[in-house]
Structure formats: C-alpha cells, structure tokens
Design a protein around this nucleic acid. Structure first.
Length: 566
DNA sequence: TTAGGGTTAG
C-alpha cells in the first residue's frame, strides 16, 4: 500500500482537531471525505483522499472506509480494494458485498462466492444485497447448483418478497438454461417491475423461446410501459423468430419513444433487419448510429456476410479498423464467413493469421471450422482436411466441421475424403447414440440428411411440398423452398432470391436445440402456407404457431405504427 | 444509507 501515501495536497489540518472528541468537526470532515470520494474520477484522486483519511485517522470508521473501498472499485483497482478491506478493523456487510461485487465486475465471480462462504465465519451475516450479488456470481459462472443452494437460503430467510433478489434468481436460472425454474420464480414473485418482466423475456429469448417472450410482452403492455431495455429484448425476440413485421412495429415504438439514439437498441435493430433479410434496412439503421462501436459494426459485418454481400462486409471491417475500433472474435467470424461466401480464400486465410499477429485475438475452433469450410468450398480439399484434423472441439462443432467437409468433398467428387469425413461423422454419431432422448435435437446439415435421425421422414415431407408446389406451377431450382438450416447452403438460397421484395417475407421457425426450417415467402404464392407449416409440424411433432403471412400485404416499406400488432 | 437486478453481435 505504499502508493497510498502520496503528498497531502488537499488538506493540511493538524490531526489533533479531528478526534472523535470533537463530534461536530468529526462529522463535517467525514462528510467532506465522503463527498470527495463520491466525486473522485481518477485513481490519483482516490489515492490522495486515502492518504488524507489515513493522516487524520478516519480509516477506523467503517462508513468512510466503505466509501473509499468503492472508490477503488470504481477505478477497477480490485487489489488495492482487497488490501484496504483486509486492513479494516470492522468490515460490515456493505464492505463484504462491495468487495464481492468488485470481483464479479473484474470477471472473477468465483472469488465473490468464496467471500460469500467466508462471511458468516467472520460473524457478518449476508443481507438481500449480498444474496443478490452471490446469485449474480452464479449467473456469470452458469453455476446452477450453487445457485439453487443460495435460492434455498433465500426461501428460508424469507427474502422471497425482495424484488431484486427474485429478479436476479430469474436471470440466474435463465443463464443456466433452466427456463422452468426461472418461470416458477417469476410466477411466484410478490412484486414485479419492468426489470423483472424484461429478465423473464430475456430468459425466453436466450433459450430459443421467442414466441413465449412476445406473448409475455403482450401481457406486459396491457398495464405497463416498456423502456429501451425491454424494447431491445422484443427486437431480439423478433430476430430469433424472423418476425420482420413485428420487428418493424417495435422499431416504430422505439422511434416514438425516442430510444432510436441508443446504441444498444440500434445494434439490435441492425441485427434484426439482417436476420429478417433486410440488409438495406440494417445499413440505414447502422448509418444513423453516431459512433458505432464493435457490436454494431460486428452486427453489420456478420449481417452482410450472411446475405452474400462479402465485399460490403469486408469494407465495413476495414472501416472499423480505420476508425480505431478493435475487432473481437465474433467480428472475425463474420469476416471469415464473408470471405468464404465470396470465394476470397486467401484473403480469408490472411485475416485468420492476422487475428493474433495484428489484433492479439487467439482464434478458436469456430474460426478454424470456418476456414475449413472456406477451403472446402473452393475445392482446396487437402488443405481443408489437414486443417480439420488439427481441430479438437465439442461434439456439436465436430459434427459441423466434418459435415461441412463431407459436403465439400462430395460436391468436388473427392470420394476418398467423402469417406473419411463420413467415418468421422459416424464415429461421432456412435459416441452420441447413448445420449439421444426422445424429442431432442434434430441437427442435420446441408447435403447430409443421413446425419439426422429423422432425415428420411423430413425429406419425404419436403419432397411432398415440392411436388405440390410444382402442381401449382412452381419450377424447382434455387428459388423457393429452403429447408435446411445450420449450414450456409440455406442462406445462399436466400441470397439467390436477390430481390429484397421476396427476401422480406421469409418466415423462420426456430425450435429449441438446433433444428430450424425456413420457408420463403414465395412459397405462399405456390402453396397454402398454413398447409406447409402443418406438414412440417406433423413431422417434427412440435407445436408450431402458424403465422399468417398474408399480413405482409398490409405493410409496405417504412414503419408500421399498428400498436396492437405484437 | 456506502453494497444488489434487466438490453445488443457468433
């Protein structure tokens, strides 16, 4: 703590006058320090105030020291804060909770949990603030087991009526993918506000239950007004469902309420329009952001890449570098995706190499898988295979990797590598066989329906759909029914439509854990859409909400202000 | 009355 003792430039009053024997002076000086700490903006100013507090002997006062502790934490000085905490004669519950929160903000939530366990041994009992902080740590760690234990204590101690504690529980269960438990907490909450409703909506969105999120929102707006946090979640739900019209309506609400200047809201809109096939709208919204940071830029880079506008994607990447915005791992996924789909393999590989050398980002399995895909598409299969063999990652990604190579080998007539990739997929399937459960994942990849457990069944239905479309004059080809997701071929088909008018109306039905089927809007022209949805829902045995695509007729470009559309 | 909850890109 040597750096605490900086020259005292602020106060030079003899310490004699500041003893507790002079309560009035003591109070005023104390208030003075607290005010200074609350307004301290730099580490130097905090150190300086700390030095003055030490001189006058106020460090024995827990209230003042807590302010000092938090001033260090605001400067991200966790080590200094912890040392100060250790030096405190009587740290109270506020000191403990502050330090715990400090560790969470410094990305060390496990230390916060350790402190939480230690507290009672130090004769300090946690309160609702401490519980919220501990639950928050579990949320960061996705540690549902510890979360459940803390939840049990919350029930025992009667903290169940605390709005903030319950909201953090909803959030924690959601981050741990336990939607049922999150919903239980939400349903039994004594009080709810816009934050708790938003938390529950986010739980749904992050667990692929966008429809439930929108239903909850419809309930919410009956008696409360949404803020920008909530509208962002609604937009996010629309993105996940491909609900363009609802997204536009929400955009209208954003503008009417004056939230369109908010970067986070704008980023969610950029993403939503891109996912709904309206890259032009994404660009419009993006260009209205005054100083776009890494997230809106990445949304745009990824969005453009996905819709085949590789050059736009790469231009945006260059622009962000020129502006001094540091890209991250997600940005590079978008860049590699763009190169892959524009045939720019060597440029893509250069970007992959530059990730670490120029930007200090270590590429992970996702980046390498993207590179394998990129090489495979262009027929550089031996390089792709050599690279693929070096990648070790989790099962889901392994399937993606070898599925992609299988598809590329097949289309380039490389029987040897087709067999190799097929073997790898088969091995994986055998490994996973024991873990399959009823109504679980239907992961299947373009050009490889054999890897889907009900692939034949699904293919039969899709063939039937195509047949019926043909009966109504539809000519099969790249336009029309697009049904296989996960792999990019599906997206290429979307790009194949080119016309924004057509791409505007595709509907995306996403189901939990992997399976997604897309139906293009022009299917409606060839086949009764409800019929198509019904057929598919029969196959997958899930309830799919049938969307009335005819509604698209009622909306033209621009914003819809129909409030009750949600 | 110093400490606690929700939003965006893969």
């Amino acid at each position: 703590m040597k750096n605490y003792f900086k020259p005292n430039l602020l106060l030079s009053i003899p310490s004699l006058h500041f003893s507790r024997q002079n309560p009035k002076l003591y109070f005023h000086t104390n208030t003075h320090f607290v005010e200074q700490l609350q307004h301290s903006k730099t580490l130097n100013s905090v150190i300086s105030i700390h030095s003055n507090i030490l001189k006058i002997g106020f460090l024995t006062d827990t209230y003042t020291t807590n302010h000092l502790l938090n001033a260090y934490l605001r400067q991200k000085e966790i080590q200094n804060a912890h040392q100060l905490f250790d030096e405190m004669s009587q740290p109270n519950v506020v000191s403990w909770t502050s330090l715990m929160a400090g560790y969470i903000n410094n990305r060390k939530p496990w230390v916060a949990l350790r402190l939480f366990e230690t507290m009672p041994k130090d004769q300090v009992l946690p309160n609702s603030f401490t519980f919220t902080t501990a639950i928050n740590a579990c949320s960061f760690l996705a540690d549902v087991e510890t979360g459940r234990k803390i939840h049990a204590h919350v029930e025992i101690l009667g903290l169940k009526s605390d709005l903030v504690v319950c909201t953090s529980l909803v959030d924690m269960y959601g981050k741990c993918n336990d939607v049922v438990e999150a919903q239980k907490v939400f349903d039994t909450m004594v009080y709810r506000n816009v934050v708790s409703w938003t938390s529950m909506m986010v739980v749904y969105v992050q667990n692929a239950l966008g429809e439930e999120a929108l239903l909850l929102f419809r309930e919410f707006i009956l008696f409360m007004s949404p803020n920008h946090f909530m509208l962002t979640s609604v937009i996010s739900a629309c993105s996940s469902l491909g609900r363009l019209v609802t997204g536009k309506v929400t955009h209208g609400a954003v503008i009417r309420r004056g939230y369109d200047g908010n970067d986070v809201v704008a980023s969610s809109l950029v993403d939503m329009y891109a996912k709904c096939g309206c890259i032009t709208y994404s660009r419009k919204v993006f260009r209205l952001i005054v100083n776009p940071g890494v997230i809106p830029f990445t949304s745009m880079v990824v969005g453009a890449a996905k819709y085949g506008q590789g050059n736009l994607s790469l231009d945006l990447f260059e622009e962000m570098i020129e502006r001094g915005i540091r890209p991250n791992d997600v940005t590079f996924l978008g860049v590699l995706h763009a190169c892959s789909h524009s045939g720019l393999v060597d440029i893509g590989l250069e970007h992959l190499n530059s990730m670490y050398t120029k930007h200090g980002i270590v590429p992970d399995a996702k980046h390498y898988i993207c590179a394998v895909d990129m090489l495979g598409r262009l027929g550089r299969l031996d390089e792709a295979y050599q690279l693929a063999k070096t990648i070790s990652t989790e099962a889901k990604e392994v399937a993606l990797l070898w599925g992609s190579l299988l598809s590329a080998s097949r289309s380039h007539g490389r029987l040897d590598l087709t067999v190799e990739a097929g073997k790898k997929l088969l091995e994986l399937k055998q490994q996973l066989a024991g873990t399959y459960i009823k109504d679980a994942t239907y992961a299947f990849y373009a050009g490889d329906m054999s890897s889907c457990t009900r692939g034949t069944e699904i293919m039969n239905v899709l063939r039937e759909l195509e047949l019926r479309m043909k009966e109504r004059g539809y000519v099969s080809g790249s336009k029309g029914l697009v049904f296989v997701d996960v792999e990019e071929e599906a997206e290429e088909a979307i790009v194949g439509l080119h016309s924004e008018k057509l791409a505007l109306g595709f509907s995306l039905i996403s189901m939990p854990r992997g399976m997604t089927i897309r139906i293009m809007k022009n299917l409606r022209m060839c086949l009764n859409c409800h019929e198509a949805f019904k057929l598919i829902s029969d196959v997958v045995k899930r309830d799919i909400v049938v969307r009335d695509l005819n509604r698209f007729h009622h909306f033209k470009d621009g914003l819809c202000t129909c409030k009750d559309f949600w």
